[in-house]
Design a protein around this nucleic acid. Structure first.
Lengths: 207, 207
DNA sequence: GCTAGCTTGTGAAGGAATTCACAAGCCCGC
DNA sequence: GCGGGCTTGTGAATTCCTTCACAAGCTAGC
């Protein structure tokens, strides 16, 4: 398949959210224009995004909400369950483990991992906190699809290396660190400090 | 000033992190090439990013770590303190309130806000949980620079509207919703579901 | 003070993403 | 079953961002 821009994938995610909302409201069809207005983009952008994957609409009418929803879910790979582990059971890791949005969207959290003996063996909202020492062995057995890194920045790269060696190929990191991984491993980083600095830049340089 | 790409600002944030690290190590100068290697980009990109703001290096030698660090802090507006409120004292809000990275980087968290009577009046790591009803009055008095939205997605837009009416012009949202605000208000959204879907897309469409 | 060896800063080129603009096609009403 | 009114799908144009490539300029060594 032709390479798809990351921005396109992000927008598909947004469209999907609206389609689910519309479906809840019983709406049958929707135009690229309406989808664009809600998603903060343009109708041409919506149509272009979809055009990379096929032709889902009916001219003169728009898109069937149910069909487009299914199509986007398929494109994003959301028609199946994904198995997730969370490495680090600190504040962020714990908040993530308890975050309901994950389960609602087909992400099954298998376990969290930590080195703190006081935490190991406990459960967070039904999710076991396991000994970090078992990480590799467990990955071999449980075969998670995705790992979330929620350890302090200093340890993030080492954690990533261990995950990669154990066979993980998709990682979401919350560490405020630039991580390096082989090209076959997809790493996404959510960096709050960076976002905040985007805001202070905007506040400082608005004129 | 000429419009600066968001990607440039994000990279400046990354460079700054490395410069601080290098400074800790006592390094005096650094080349664009080294900065690029650490930051996962190219030396031309580093130089281009900096060139929008001035000329900070010495040909043949590179950049003074201390000077460049100061310059980037100034560009990003980090030479001053910023006053932050967190709206929503649930899991995410609480984790953010206790997140040390904020304070370390000059973000002073004034208060959090919630509607839950059981939470109101308590403190999270020294930060007061206040009644959401007081939001507008408090903003008028405390004049926070930045608001963080950590309420459930359903209430996010209404929260944003209230913040905007009260005079807030910079918002970081953790709600999984597309938010709309007037153009003079800068809104950044951290959407974990979107990031995860970027991963499942990559996992599904790798071939 | 001169030369060799680097590294910056920056126009120009190239590439990627977005927007434009319109032909193609569908539906509804008559 | 035909015409008017919409809306899609998509090449072309445009805008935005990144990479290239090299002149300019600094340092260190002799």
């Amino acid at each position: 398949m032709k390479r798809i821009a990351e921005s396109t994938v992000r927008r598909l995610s947004i469209y999907l959210r609206f389609l689910e909302e519309f479906e809840g409201n019983g709406l049958a069809t929707i135009s690229s224009d309406e989808l664009a207005r809600r998603g903060g983009t343009t109708s041409a952008q919506v149509r272009k995004d979809l055009s990379f994957f096929g032709s889902f609409g009916k001219r003169g009418l728009g898109y069937s909400v149910a069909e487009l929803r299914t199509a986007i879910r398929e494109i994003l790979g959301l028609q199946r369950e994904w198995r997730v582990i969370i490495v680090g059971a600190g504040k962020i890791g714990a908040a993530l483990a308890q975050y309901r949005g994950f389960r609602q969207r087909g992400f099954q959290i298998i376990a969290t991992y930590d080195t703190n003996p006081e935490k190991i063996g406990r459960t967070l909202d039904g999710i076991e906190v396991r000994d970090m020492a078992r990480l590799e062995a467990d990955i071999g057995r449980d075969k998670p699809d995705i790992a979330v890194i929620a350890v302090p920045s200093e340890g993030a790269q080492e954690t990533l290396d261990r995950l990669v060696r154990a066979g993980i190929t998709a990682v979401l990191s919350f560490a405020a660190a630039q991580l390096h991984a082989p090209p076959e491993v997809t790493v996404k980083t959510v960096n709050m400090a960076m976002e905040l600095e985007g805001l202070t830049f905007a506040l400082t340089n608005k004129d």
